Amino acid sequence: MSKIKVAVSGANGKMGQEVLKMVINDPELELVAAIDLKMDAIDVGLVLGMDTVGINFENNIEQSLMRCHADVLIDFTNPQAVHHNIKTAIQYGVYPVVGTTGLQLEEIKEFDRLLKERELGGIFAPNFAIGAILMMRFAEQAAKYMPHVEIIELHHDQKIDAPSGTALKTAEMIKAQRKSIKQGLENEYEKIPGSRGGEYDGFRIHSVRLPGFVAHQEVIFGSQGQVLSIKHDSIHRESFMPGVNLAVKKVKDFVGAIYGLENLID
């Protein structure tokens, strides 16, 4: 069985480095390109603290994909770069697996159209941690019976977007399971603007950004005489790698865009 050839964009970021280690250590995968705008001509292994692996960092995605004939591009960059990276991957017939957050549903629909035109599949996941996927699914189920809810998400202070993609995906899943409810008092007001968080379909989403966090989310449901709290914590970025690995190995099985890793698990 031939190996899946993998290119990684955003390869020298914190998530990117974890992805590189995962690909290098999986005998079913072959790293063929490590793309990062701030790196060039340095062996990946030297940056990761291991022996040389024979793959140097590159800073031009077009040249990299043209050269390496990758099957899959894993992208953990930023909202400014990801559109170009995905379209470039599709142009070269490469299946995108995207963990970069900040994409809107309308944009994913556009990528779905482009992927179908080329008969490619693509996976766009706000969160690749299996535990986080279960947290979202449990919240989706709870919303059928306890529609009053708020979401609190906590991330490191280098995260550029708020709320997180995971929080937005959770909110969308909750919305699909309950009637829209305007929560809180009619005459509620904020002494400090924004202190009640952002509003989505009548409920609130709160974002915390502090050093020390990785990725954390709590979904709190309130009902008469009871409170249900569903919480997930990623304490290290390696928690996302089993999900990324699963996506890489599944993405060629379908055509079009898949939004959310929960679509790949039972």
Score class of each variant (00 low, 15 high):
196 R>D: 15
45 G>S: 08
245 N>K: 15
164 S>Q: 06
169 K>W: 14
92 Y>C: 00
107 E>T: 06
63 Q>A: 15
113 R>L: 13
58 E>W: 10
105 L>H: 14
163 P>I: 14
78 N>D: 14
171 A>S: 09
51 D>F: 11
149 V>G: 04
171 A>W: 03
208 V>D: 13
9 S>R: 11
200 Y>G: 01
105 L>Y: 10
232 H>G: 05
111 F>G: 03
191 K>C: 10
232 H>L: 06
69 H>M: 12
98 V>P: 03
34 A>K: 13
257 A>R: 03
186 E>Q: 11
61 I>N: 14
10 G>P: 12
192 I>T: 15
146 M>L: 14
65 L>W: 04
130 I>C: 09
77 T>S: 11
61 I>H: 10
211 P>N: 01
83 H>V: 02
3 K>A: 13
229 S>M: 15
203 F>Q: 06
58 E>G: 13
33 A>F: 00
75 D>T: 09
257 A>W: 10
89 A>C: 00
107 E>V: 01
191 K>R: 15
73 L>G: 10
94 V>Y: 01
177 Q>W: 03
70 A>R: 07
184 G>H: 00
78 N>E: 12
199 E>Q: 07
213 F>M: 11
141 Q>K: 12
249 K>P: 00
127 N>Q: 12
189 Y>W: 08
82 V>K: 10
100 T>H: 02
116 K>G: 04
134 L>N: 13
233 D>I: 15
193 P>C: 11
185 L>V: 05
46 L>E: 15
62 E>V: 15
266 D>G: 14
261 L>T: 09
79 P>Q: 04
228 L>A: 07
144 K>W: 06
177 Q>M: 10
129 A>D: 06
215 A>P: 00
152 I>T: 15
191 K>E: 11
35 I>F: 07
140 E>G: 10
186 E>H: 08
193 P>E: 12
191 K>F: 15
200 Y>D: 00
15 M>P: 03
246 L>E: 09
163 P>A: 12
58 E>P: 08
114 L>N: 04
57 F>R: 02
254 F>D: 02
176 A>E: 14
95 Y>G: 02
248 V>K: 04
110 E>I: 12
194 G>Q: 04
156 H>E: 11
5 K>S: 02
